[in-house]
């Protein structure tokens, strides 16, 4: 067992709620008042498969669960599951709803190594690498003269069509680094 601070919860974490293990599907932090924050968590009970939403103060402590983990690569989608493969070509299926928060980054045959978590030999969650690289399929024309990165605009990622804010100098076809924990653009590679 370990301690998880609500503020640090992210998709794929497994914690104990009301005596039962749940996997975090999505955790969203919102600032409330006087520099306090609340964390809204969508989680799936690993015993009943029931999905529910709960809330915590950002500094609440939760009981984390140490789980078996394996490095895998994403392979393909076979409705309603995503399929991941380990080094020995074992396939693991995880239902799309559980990792819906990651679908904006998942593409067939992606090279990045993901961490698949198992509960009683059952794959229950995936954590992507902190940094991934994706190609920009569309964004408005480059803003000349701005190299500071402070001005942002919307970009659409190739394949997943996910939209995010990028620096104004990013162009169509650029490869960009994205922080999967925050969902933020980090830098342009090309």
């Amino acid at each position: 067992m370990s301690v998880k601070i609500a503020n640090n919860l992210q998709s794929g974490n497994v914690v104990i709620l009301e005596g039962e293990p749940v996997v975090v599907i999505k955790a969203v932090i919102n600032k409330s008042g006087r520099n306090q924050a609340v964390v809204k968590v969508k989680a799936k009970n690993l015993l009943t498969n029931r999905v529910s939403e709960v809330i915590f103060k950002s500094d609440d402590k939760l009981e984390g669960v140490m789980m078996e983990k394996k490095d895998c690569k994403y392979s393909y989608f076979s409705a309603p599951n995503h399929v991941f493969v380990d080094d020995e070509f074992n396939e693991y299926e995880i239902d799309a709803e559980t990792i819906s928060d990651l679908e904006k980054y998942i593409v067939d045959g992606m090279e990045e190594v993901c961490e698949v978590t198992f509960y009683e030999d059952r794959p229950i969650s995936v954590v992507l690498p902190k940094i991934i690289v994706r190609e920009v399929e569309y964004t408005e024309p480059v803003v000349r003269g701005d190299t500071s990165g402070k001005i942002t605009k919307t970009a659409v990622l190739k394949e997943t069509k996910h939209e995010l804010q990028v620096s104004a100098f990013v162009e169509i076809g650029d490869k960009i680094e994205i922080d999967t924990e925050t969902g933020e653009f980090r830098k342009r590679l090309s």
């Binding site: 009301e18 969203v28 919102n30 006087r34 609340v38 809204k40 709960v54 809330i55 103060k57 009981e63």
Partner: peptide, 25 residues
């Protein structure tokens, strides 16, 4: 837990959510 007043949209989806206690029922 009576929270702070806010006009932000996220409040609507968060109002009345429950927070299970870590140790107690």
């Amino acid at each position: 837990n009576l929270e702070y007043l806010s006009a932000e949209d996220w409040v609507v989806g968060t109002h009345l959510l429950a927070s299970p206690h870590k140790h107690h029922p």
